[in-house]
Design a protein around this nucleic acid. Structure first.
Lengths: 204, 204
DNA sequence: GTTGGTTGGAACGATAGCGTTCCACTCATG
DNA sequence: CATGAGTGGAACGCTATCGTTCCAACCAAC
């Protein structure tokens, strides 16, 4: 029903020249969207201010995205929330350290931290947001599961451990410290975390 | 400077009759404040709607609290966020179990859960909120510290453990499961948590 | 050069919350 | 019973955002 471009059966010519969206405007809008989000929160996020901060008209924004939720759903997958997969580090301990460091790298950005906390608070009210970040959660879950399976194959963990609770232990303490209480985490802390998390996993 | 009542040197009589705040109205406002908060979030929380939902005029609200932040700061200490102190349970394991159960009791309420997540997201933007919940955080910290000291005295923990990180492990995983991912936690899960948390603490 | 579809920007009316002000009403006190 | 401070409720003007609509400017394709 919806034709992307002039998609009629007699398309005379394709749009060109000024008649094509300028990428720089899209980028400016995306950037100011996240910047405003971290500044005032999702609920108080005004698309009008986003456009103004991007130095762009409101119509430019609404022509690209129909609503705030749609914009968030479209843009969220583009930011660096993905924990870079580090592969097999050879031991459970090294794998844990890799995950924690990757998670910390994400949570260290002030903007991302705020947006994440806001996101988690808003998910219960905006189903579209949940759908948008489900892939990330799934990826994280898969990755942890992989680590657990490798550890079991190595004989470092019993096959009876609970994968879900292990996931809670891997991300919970660090998330609590960095995102909830605005604490910090240096190398010493990470090392302690690795030690304690490993012990918890082996007891699970 | 500010006289509470008619505190002049010639105070003829004290306010009475209809000229005194009705407790039921204050209560209705408090309840609808939290109800609305959990429904739409702090940022989108409209005091006008709060008053309307309480079946009360706006002036009634503004006469009691000057602003949303002030209302939150005043009301937050009154809700059941306080983890009931369970005292010495005789062993580290029992103490951990008691803390986790108390924390779960709080996080099980759908309303409290949402408000807590919202609160944590908003703290970075509203300094007044941080001041309001600081006592709770301090109480929780003190309580955990007490547990740790008892465990050290019993010989269950080494005196070198890091109290802060232990706090992260005690609340982090459960908060992550219940508040962030809207998971659930039955008795089996709590028992597993107790086991794993104790192992982590002993490795810290 | 002309064309044509899309652009960014500025205006619109509508809706909603803010914080204030005014007013009739209430009711224990004296 | 008369008093009067404090009440709850309705209205005010103000500001901001919403989503839409209109318009001149633009520029590769023909």
């Amino acid at each position: 029903m919806k034709r992307n471009r002039s998609d009629d059966n007699h398309s005379p010519r394709r749009p060109s020249g000024a008649a094509v969206m300028r990428v720089q405007v899209t980028d400016a809008l995306s950037r100011s969207f996240f910047s405003e989000w971290s500044r005032v929160g999702y609920a108080a996020l005004s698309l009008e201010r986003v456009a103004k901060a991007a130095g762009v008209g409101k119509a430019a924004l609404y022509r690209r995205w129909p609503s705030k939720a749609a914009m968030a759903s479209d843009l969220l997958p583009r930011v660096g929330l993905t924990l870079t997969d580090t592969g097999d580090k050879g031991s459970l301990e090294a794998d844990i350290r890799a995950v924690l460091l990757a998670f910390r790298r994400v949570l260290r950005h002030r903007m991302i931290r705020r947006i994440l906390a806001d996101l988690h608070a808003e998910i219960g009210r905006e189903p579209a947001l949940e759908a948008a970040i489900r892939p990330f959660q799934q990826a994280r879950r898969d990755r942890v599961q992989l680590i657990v399976e490798r550890a079991i194959a190595r004989g470092e963990l019993a096959p009876t451990v609970d994968r879900e609770t292990i996931l809670d232990f891997l991300v919970g303490p660090l998330y609590w410290r960095l995102a909830v209480t605005a604490g910090c985490s240096d190398v010493t802390h990470i090392e302690r975390l690795v030690r304690m998390t490993k012990a918890a996993m082996m007891a699970g």
